[in-house]
Amino acid sequence: MKAAVIVFPGSNCDRDLAVAFESAGADVTMVWHKDSTLPQGVDIVGIPGGFSFGDYLRCGAIAARSPICQAVVAHADRGGYAMGICNGFQVLTETGVLPGALLRNAGLKYICKTVGLKVETSSSAFTEGYNAGDTVNIPIAHHDGNYFADAETVARLKGEDRVAFTYTDNPNGSISDIAGILSENRRVLGMMPHPERAADSGHGGTDGAALFRALTGALAPA
């Protein structure tokens, strides 16, 4: 599997995501935000966590208008795989690739801790390593992770089995406890929690590793 990890000037989980991809057997290329094309033959684009442009204006809003994001949107439109974690999820909603928005946490404070997530669907390249209904422990670290979408959109996400993860104990006020969602074609995942921070035994938890393993398996050349 060939993965590209996008690097914005304020990305700070870019290396962490690359390490998680590599540990699962992927070849990783780091791609600078001023580039306007993705490397040839990329199977998946990862948009990492961090503060892409300082989170000034709105988290992810400036990044969504950077040259590389036009290429990421085109890649997703062509049916390519992409995943956005934390700030990456915010970028994906700002580009319109995923619906909804991430608002300030209900408690108004930044929260960093490991939380319980319920796997809502195992039918995607990202979640097929889990069973639907499993509870996994994955860290969160965000100030603006309060997922919001209108009632119609939420109903659609649920009806189309596109909610990937929900919080078992909602930390940030997200509507319907939503922690991560899939695109219509199930090939783009956006999630606030950080599976790359629970991907090897030294992290104190490895529940995130299954996501990267499943992805590498699903996208391996036939």
Partner: peptide, 18 residues
């Protein structure tokens, strides 16, 4: 002191062992 340190990112760089 959870109220304090949960407002800090304690895990970025993914090398926090404790």
């Amino acid at each position: 002191k959870n109220w304090v340190y949960e407002q800090y990112d304690t895990m970025v760089m993914a090398d926090s062992a404790r």
